[in-house]
């Protein structure tokens, strides 16, 4: 059963019970989104835990999480619903005999077609409807949490299509009529801010900017997500990562990368972060050669030509 949040402190406390450290700000706005029944648009750099917020939110309130990952070219049939053609075909084949009885004795082709048309709702009924995330969220048995992930990747016209759903929580399917939400889902949209979203979409949402957390919060996240890490090491690691974020890098390390790095440090049984350990593990944090060079310069220790770091040429991320 879903249990909405009762107050701001309750929101924060239950989110943290679901392993998500929510700042005052996040707590307040999540609480508001639920109180007002408004979609929430969370914007911010990649890897600050926007998607994690959705998961924790769903877990904390006991809602099923329905996720729609956006990408270029995403269209209604992938997001909303699709007719199950194959099943329709199969049924027509299997029902050939009964169809023949229906059509038997038709005087003309026109009459046969009319009789067939009278029966066509059989094939355009809900049993042949394949619900995609948006429709699934509207028709869900219990109130759901709909996560529309990375909306900035979808095309602009998809954004326009979302407007209808976000303001009325209903969709029209030509063959069936209008489907209204059984329960109004909570909606979280995330954006990595790679392009400006339309003002119409922003107007319909509450807005939350999620930034990298401060030192204490990130250490807290690390302790929660990487159990068994020594507090001193956790703090040292976070301080280092946060220093990296201040450099002018092509790809700034995200929280998830901090977590991966901490796990790597644990796996290597690192006591503290010495140059040697860094040399071996920095590829987890930085994925570009030029970024690595900058990081070394920051540490005041540029390796000579012979010992140049070679493992860091990861796949280009964007």
């Amino acid at each position: 059963m879903s249990q909405p949040f009762a107050s701001i402190p309750d929101t924060r406390q239950r989110l943290s019970a679901s392993a998500y450290i929510a700042s005052e700000e996040i707590g307040t706005i999540v609480f508001l989104a639920e109180q007002l029944g408004k979609p929430l648009l969370a914007e911010g750099p990649a890897g600050v835990g926007k998607t994690e917020l959705a998961k924790a939110w769903a877990a904390a309130t006991g809602r099923p999480l329905i996720r729609l990952q956006c990408y270029e070219g995403l269209d209604e049939s992938k997001a909303l619903y699709e007719w199950e053609y194959a099943k329709q075909m199969l049924y027509t084949q299997l029902l050939r005999d009964s169809l023949r009885t229906t059509l038997d004795g038709a005087a003309s082709l026109a009459e046969a077609a009319a009789r067939l048309a009278a029966e066509d709702e059989v094939f355009f009924s809900e049993s042949f409807l394949l619900p995609r995330p948006l429709l699934a969220a509207l028709t869900s048995e219990e109130p759901a949490l709909l996560l529309i992930d990375e909306i900035d990747r979808a095309d602009v016209e998809f954004e326009a299509f979302l407007l209808e759903i976000l303001s009325d929580f209903q969709v029209s399917i030509p063959e069936l009529g209008t489907v209204a939400a059984r329960h109004r889902p909570v909606v979280l949209l995330t954006s990595n801010d790679t392009r400006e979203l339309s003002e119409a979409l922003k107007r319909r949402c509450l807005y939350l900017y999620v930034d990298y957390p401060d030192l204490e919060a990130e250490v807290e996240i690390l302790r929660l997500r990487v159990p068994g890490i020594r507090p001193a090491l956790a703090e040292e690691a976070v301080i280092f990562v946060q220093q990296l974020r201040e450099l002018d890098l092509r790809k700034v390390p995200s929280i998830s990368e901090t977590l991966d790095w901490a796990r790597a440090l644990m796996a290597l049984n690192a006591e503290s972060i010495d140059p040697d350990t860094l040399q071996r593990t920095l590829g987890v944090l930085l994925k570009y050669e030029s970024d690595l060079a900058r990081a070394y310069r920051m540490m005041g220790r540029l390796p000579g030509r012979g010992e140049r770091w070679e493992g860091g040429r990861g796949p280009a991320n964007n």
């Binding site: 701001i8 005052e24 700000e25 307040t28 706005i29 508001l32 648009l41 914007e43 801010d193 400006e196 003002e199 922003k202 107007r203 949402c205 509450l206 807005y207 939350l208 900017y209």
Partner: peptide, 14 residues
């Protein structure tokens, strides 16, 4: 909290 509530509902661009 009051400030954040106003901010979230009126300011949609950083």
């Amino acid at each position: 909290a009051f400030r954040r509530a106003l901010s979230a509902s009126t300011v949609k661009a950083r």
